[in-house]
């Protein structure tokens, strides 16, 4: 039995279809990522899976419990970290943690082994009010509070949004360790580069799942020649390439453009074109597709 089973689940608000007949399954102990921008439906999906919203249609189960019929049971076995910081701002770090342990009928001591390597990082601030913590600290405290009752499944809704790159990297290292303890983790993120840190991902946009697979499979199935290209006149390069029939797609990717061509042209053809247009300091190299390339292609 899968840890999370989602079957044709839908939810709309007025005439906005937030989640549209979404199905997927997450195995026990898997680290599964929902990758998509703001407004993709990630949060609505999380709320349905954590029993906080009732789907318009479709069904879902978490550890075999039905999200509507067995909602009380689900709430005891999951940890949920909402996208918006939802701890008590006026309580200290230690008080927040104690509070969550108590309402789940446990103590910090009993499950300290689960949170230890996260908690030690915020322990120096245990007397500080949660509202006064930095973004990275808040995120660590929220994770501790979501873990303190030893959940079987963790739901993390955009845990790394608004957090600096160092804290993000540390957070993903922590998730890797939690996974080793057998906890199923469903995590959402708008950062495409975080997709590769998950075992499997679902790309989601406009309430629809575009693709589900391992990050490696998703990127290796791109199937068309892809180059990174740059020259001194970046903006002119972009516009000129866009006008070429051989260019299926030209997208800025940081300091390079990603150029997807049809199969009829070779790397040398592209190079000749760039030289004929008098570009200076040309760089052109084939590159493997990233999750973001695939996402753009599927949109």
């Amino acid at each position: 039995m899968a840890s999370i089973q989602v079957d044709q689940i839908s939810k709309s608000f007025g005439n906005v279809q937030a989640v549209n007949a979404v199905s997927f399954a997450v195995e026990k102990g898997e680290l599964f990522g929902l990758i998509g921008p703001d407004g993709a439906g990630k949060t609505t999906l999380f709320k349905m899976l954590t029993s906080l919203l009732i789907p318009d249609s479709g069904e879902a189960w978490v550890e075999g419990y039905h999200t509507v019929k067995d909602f009380k049971k689900i709430r005891r076995i999951i940890g949920y970290m909402p996208g918006k910081f939802s701890l008590y701002q006026d309580l200290t770090v230690a008080e927040n943690l104690d509070f969550f342990a108590t309402i789940f009928g446990t103590t910090i001591q009993e499950n300290y082994h689960l949170i230890e390597d996260i908690y030690v990082q915020i322990e120096p601030f245990r007397k500080r009010r949660a509202g006064k913590l930095s973004g990275g600290m808040k995120q660590k405290l929220a994770l501790c509070c979501a873990l303190i009752h030893e959940p079987k499944v963790l739901f993390l809704d955009e845990p790394t949004t608004g957090v600096d790159a160092v804290s993000r990297a540390e957070f993903w290292e922590m998730l890797g360790r939690l996974k080793e303890k057998g906890i199923t983790i469903l995590v959402s993120t708008p950062y495409m580069d975080e997709a590769t840190l998950c075992e499997r991902i679902a790309l989601i946009q406009g309430g629809n799942i575009l693709q589900i697979d391992t990050p490696d499979h998703i990127t290796s199935n791109y199937g068309k020649p892809l180059y990174a290209v740059r020259s001194d006149e970046f903006y002119r390069l972009l516009n000129e390439l866009r006008d070429q029939a051989f260019a299926l797609r030209v997208e800025p990717f940081g300091e390079y453009l990603h150029l997807t061509t049809n199969d009829a042209v070779s790397e040398q053809d592209v190079r000749d074109f760039l030289q004929a247009n008098a570009h200076q300091n040309i760089e052109l190299k084939p590159v493997p597709a990233s999750v973001e390339d695939v996402f753009l292609d599927l949109m």
Partner: peptide
């Protein structure tokens, strides 16, 4: 921050 990859690129352009 947080916008989809296509919108982000239109914006950077």
């Amino acid at each position: 921050g947080g916008v989809d990859p296509a919108t982000r690129r239109q914006f950077w352009e």
